[in-house]
Amino acid sequence: MNKKDELLKIFSLKLRTMLSKVEFNYDKLQEIRLRVNGPLIVIYDNKEFFITGDSRMVEKDEDAYIILKNEIRETMEYISNFSLYAFEEEIKQGFITITGGHRVGIVGKAVLDDNKIKSIKHISFINIRLSHQIKGCGDKVLPYLLDEYNNCYHTLIISPPRCGKTTLLRDVIRQLSNGDEKRPGMTIGVVDERSEIGACYMGIPQNDLGIRTDVLDCCPKAKGMLMLIRSMSPRVIAVDEVGSGEDIDAIEYVMNCGCKLIATVHGNSIEDIKSKPILGKLVEEKLFERYILLSNAKGVGHLEDVYDANGNRI
């Protein structure tokens, strides 16, 4: 099943018909947003567009199709295969991963139990984020991540939102895991807290993360890193969007165990990371040996700079 078909089948019949007639290049389609009594919006090639009732993509909302409550309900029925109960654990997390690795974010009324989210009901807002894998996008940074003996450096990928850090991380994992004729593959452990790296569906990664990669899906990063160290003996652990105090404690533990770490973080520069109370400690202690800075100055995923542990440009 191609990307178009696997995506369209999750929508209500009316929305499915409308969207099928829009002339999308599905490799450029990033998000589809549904809000009750709100316009149908897509993020396409990094720009926001509205979809009209006659399947046109426009820049102004005057003619946009307005989403009805029953269309949200019908869409959720297709997303969950008519069994929302079966996805109770995923709903607690606020998203469901579907075939193809696409992630469906959901928001409504939170049901709390002992101040913890038990479920979400009256779902009224849906954001479908399409999974895109760009094989080879890690080619430009991989030489900076390995020493002369093909050992991996502790690496932090710094990037503003929507500049390709997760896409880059995914391809770096794949390449390190597979190896090539010049270097052996490595055992990689991935903690995929929000199912964005591997995009697992029923426990199986929908994205290619390489033949020596183990994925711990929907697990908090800090707990997941410790679990992988104890159970899977990885040479490298990869995580996305670190930042909490628990994350930092786990990162230090991983590094002290002799395992290499590749992580990403939101930011615009090393100085930006230094200014963060928790992450700044790791920078000052020079625990990371490589910093990869991305931007969208020349398109998503542009490699802006590479720095060593001392903050010197390489």
Rank of each mutant, 00 (worst) to 15 (best):
K135P: 01
F87K: 15
I67S: 02
L169R: 01
C218H: 13
D247V: 07
K3N: 13
P184A: 09
N37S: 13
I134C: 01
D249Q: 13
K3Q: 14
T52C: 11
K276Q: 12
R103W: 13
M227R: 05
C200F: 08
Y201C: 11
K281S: 13
D63M: 12
N310R: 14
K60P: 01
V141I: 15
C163S: 14
G38I: 11
L169T: 03
E59W: 08
K298Q: 14
V300D: 02
S83K: 13
K286V: 10
I248L: 12
V239F: 04
L261C: 05
I123P: 02
N37V: 06
L293I: 13
R73V: 14
K298H: 13
T97M: 08
F125P: 03
G100M: 08
L294T: 03
V283A: 06
D247C: 04
D54Q: 11
N178E: 11
Y291F: 15
E62R: 12
I126Q: 02
L84V: 15
T187C: 09
A297F: 10
H132Q: 13
M225G: 05
I106E: 03
D63V: 06
N207P: 09
S55E: 05
T167W: 00
E196T: 09
V36E: 14
S275N: 15
D139Q: 05
F125G: 12
I248P: 00
P160W: 07
Y44D: 05
T17L: 12
S20L: 04
L287D: 05
N310H: 12
